[in-house]
Design a protein around this nucleic acid. Sequence first.
DNA 1: GTCTATAGACTGATAGAC
DNA 2: GTCTATCAGTCTATAGAC
Lengths: 213, 213
Amino acid sequence: MKKQPEIEKNPSTEEKIKEAARRVFTKKGYAATRTRDIAEESGFNLALINYYFRSKEKLFDIIMLEHLQIFIHSVMGIVNDPETTLQEKMEILISHYIDMLIKNPDIPLFVLSEINANPVKLISKLGFNKVQHGNIYLVKQWKELAATQKQLLINPIHIIMNVLSLTIFPFISSPLLRNRTGMSLEAFNKLMEERKKLIPVWINVMIGNSNTN
Amino acid sequence: MKKQPEIEKNPSTEEKIKEAARRVFTKKGYAATRTRDIAEESGFNLALINYYFRSKEKLFDIIMLEHLQIFIHSVMGIVNDPETTLQEKMEILISHYIDMLIKNPDIPLFVLSEINANPVKLISKLGFNKVQHGNIYLVKQWKELAATQKQLLINPIHIIMNVLSLTIFPFISSPLLRNRTGMSLEAFNKLMEERKKLIPVWINVMIGNSNTN
DNA sequence: GTCTATAGACTGATAGAC
DNA sequence: GTCTATCAGTCTATAGAC
């Protein structure tokens, strides 16, 4: 019943710095971020960052690892659920991603940029390659479907690409799009809410129509 | 009949530096690029960069402007062609973009990252907002179609998003995707070639099925 | 734990020789 | 035009006071 000692009644200094770093890194990227920016954003002194995290790079690794875990961990529960159908998984996944992206619209561009800038480090060193595809329930269901759908000529990787593209890309291009059209953030988010229902419909008609072409 | 003096028989020093800058900036982004990297890549000395371009930022602006013009100018001829139908325009546009992206896969992530990092400068200062939508032939055709399709409940902006998402996003996520699946660059490019035909089909069934849902 | 002050390395830009 | 040498400013990281 007793809580662990010091489980942040209100955020500790270390946690505040980490949150500040998350905001600054995610917005500006690793190279453009100065340790001074994080200090200023956190309200503490520059020296404290190195006191808690030893270096800018170590702090960055922590932030990036947490971002990747948000995307991977949160999804694992969905794709590994034996209770839901393939169709339901897709709907839940898209809805879940869009919710997350409305809250954290800068994450995809940040993650993809940093992976592009330093693929070796971010993919191998951060333990990002430990996921075992074979054991995932979604993959099992997918294979079962593929076995029955002998007519389906399209490469399944196209479908995966399409789900991710339709879900994530609008957020990546949001600054440009909103500027060009004069759309407000609220209007944009409302469009994204609409897409929770639209994308699964689109994906279904894609699968249904690609082989009868 | 006489050519302009010195229209690069083989590339001038200035042109070589610009090409080197294009490669380095596009790969690493503005902040992570050091003037010394460009010098090394070009084979010339650091001082020459400032001799020709005065500053790192001025050189960057030139590169970025050229990238934006590639994307805008090359597209203008297509969307303004009165000879082609809306359907044909879409097919040509997608095919044209995929060709360009296979040759320059780093451009979208680069452009979108830099716009995200500095929206005010890159959208207004670089004269990126001079396009007059009203005069474009594609927009005219679009409005004509919309007038006849009174059943079409879906916001047209979704369709534009979808075309761009399905075309561009695979290139942005290519480093991650290829690493996760072990796919070669050749195999990836072949998939993208397939998408030249697939995306227009998908867009058509989207338009056809979204309102009968 | 938190601060000020500063060391030590690096960066963009320029002066000046050739 | 192209180079070497170097300046002035900025950056990360640390030493040391409190």
